[in-house]
Amino acid sequence: MAAAASSMMTTTILAAILISLAGVATTADAKFRAMQWTPAHATFYGDETASETMGGACGYGDLYASGYGTDTAALSTTLFRDGYGCGTCYQLRCVGTSSCYRGSPVITVTATNLCPPNWSIPSDAGGWCNPPRSHFDLAKPAFMKMADWHAGIVPVMYRRVPCVRSGGVRFSLQGNGYWLLVYVMNVAGAGDVGDMWVSGGGQGWMRMSHNWGASYQAFAQLGGRELSFKVTSYTTGETILAAGVAPASWCVGLTYQARVNFR
């Protein structure tokens, strides 16, 4: 009996270890990694102050206040993916033209805006953001880190890379007593958000719908309740739990930072 009990205990321990290892493998597989280099083109908009790049289709508002600064890009429709491309990070280097700086320096930018298509112009003659082109319309300070801005447009090689962020995911709250609108910012790892849930005061999870850009909404009375969020990456499918992010006294117009982030 002792031998049988010992054998059963060993089997149970091994099973627990296997389950644990399986969980670790799943987590590791979800970690976003840099993709391969691909050709595209890049332009710029605005001036050296990058004042025209503030706001944008992702809804991040003041890009200095939200932590993105001037190393940002407006993506063509193909890369923007109806807003699911918001927050993604790319490395670019200028290639194949005398306008490129010596050594082809690599820059890293975050997607914060949409470069809309111009259907009145052919995609090879000015309609650079028309599908199916992959194109980057950079903030001018970012463009100037890799090429002479007088060129206007330059060929580049680009690759999507993990986003490196300081601190946890940030949730900027808008809406009213019956509608909660949340802008999700400072997302690390793949940088994007594909799904989101909210729980008010320990109640059950309510799935939020995608509004536009990097915002998600819930039609519910959540005022006076502590808010928790579950956020799923669009690219990796990994989900993180941001528990107790906003206190019961939360207010619209404020941004609350979680203690967790993607890797």
Rank of each mutant, 00 (worst) to 15 (best):
Trp149Leu: 05
Arg165Cys: 01
Trp128Arg: 07
Leu241Gln: 08
Ile153Ala: 13
Asp62His: 00
Asp148Leu: 07
Cys89Trp: 12
Trp205Met: 08
Gly253Gln: 13
Val182Asp: 08
Val24Lys: 01
Asp192Cys: 09
Gly191Ala: 02
Ser98Tyr: 05
Leu75Val: 02
Phe136Thr: 09
Cys163Ser: 14
Cys58Ile: 09
Gly85Ser: 12
Arg225Val: 02
Phe44Gly: 07
Arg225Thr: 01
Ser123Ile: 05
Gln174Thr: 09
Pro141Cys: 07
Ile153Phe: 05
Trp250Met: 11
Met144Lys: 15
Trp128Met: 03
Ile153Cys: 12
Leu241Thr: 11
Gln36Tyr: 03
Glu52Met: 14
Val187Glu: 14
Asp29Ile: 11
Trp119Ile: 06
Gly46Ala: 08
Ala3Ile: 13
Pro247Thr: 13
Ala34Asp: 10
Ala73Arg: 12
Gly237Leu: 03
His41Glu: 04
Leu138Thr: 00
Ile121Asp: 03
Met185Leu: 11
Leu79Phe: 06
Trp250Gln: 13
Asn261Met: 11
Cys94Phe: 01
Arg133Gln: 13
Trp149Ile: 04
Asn130Glu: 02
Ala74Asn: 07
Ser134His: 04
Asp82Glu: 10
Gly167Asn: 13
Cys89Ser: 15
Gln174Gly: 13
Thr49Val: 01
Arg259Phe: 01
Met8Cys: 03
Asn211Gln: 13
Gly127Arg: 09
Val156Cys: 04
Ala220Arg: 14
Ser172Ala: 09
Gly61Asp: 00
Lys145Phe: 00
Tyr256Thr: 12
Ser20Met: 10
Met35Glu: 15
Ser66Glu: 07
Met208His: 12
Gly61Ser: 02
Thr77Trp: 00
Ala190Met: 05
Tyr256Trp: 12
Ile240Met: 01
Phe80Ile: 08
Pro39Tyr: 05
Arg133Tyr: 05
Phe171Gln: 04
Gly237Cys: 01
Gln221Glu: 12
Arg165Glu: 10
Glu238Trp: 02
Cys115Pro: 04
Trp250Tyr: 15
Ala65Tyr: 01
Asp29Ala: 15
Ala243Ile: 01
Ser98Arg: 12
Pro247Arg: 08
Ile121Glu: 09
Pro122Thr: 11
Tyr183Ser: 12
Pro162Arg: 09
Trp149Glu: 13
Leu79Met: 14
Trp128Asp: 03
Thr38Pro: 06
Thr49Ile: 01
Leu114Asp: 03
Thr236Lys: 00
Ala2Ser: 06
Thr112Pro: 12
Trp250Ser: 11
Ala142Asp: 08
Ser233Met: 06
Ala151Lys: 11
Tyr158His: 13
Ile240Pro: 00
Val184Ile: 15
Tyr90Lys: 14
Ser6Arg: 15
His41Trp: 01
Ser134Lys: 07
Ala16Thr: 07
Thr38Tyr: 02
Met8Ile: 05
Met146Trp: 04
Thr236Pro: 02
Tyr158Met: 08
Phe219Lys: 09
Ser98Trp: 00
Ile121Val: 15
Pro141Tyr: 03
Gly55Trp: 04
Cys115Gln: 01
Glu226Trp: 00
Leu18Glu: 10
Gly55Val: 03
Met1Tyr: 06
Leu181Thr: 08
Ala190Asp: 13
Trp149His: 11
Met35Asp: 15
Ser104Cys: 02
Ser228Asp: 04
Pro247Glu: 04
Val109Pro: 04
Met9Val: 09
Tyr216Met: 10
Thr97Ala: 03
Gly59Arg: 09
Ser66Leu: 06
Arg263Lys: 11
Pro162Asp: 07
Asp29Ser: 15
Phe262Met: 09
Ser166Pro: 00
Gly175Val: 10
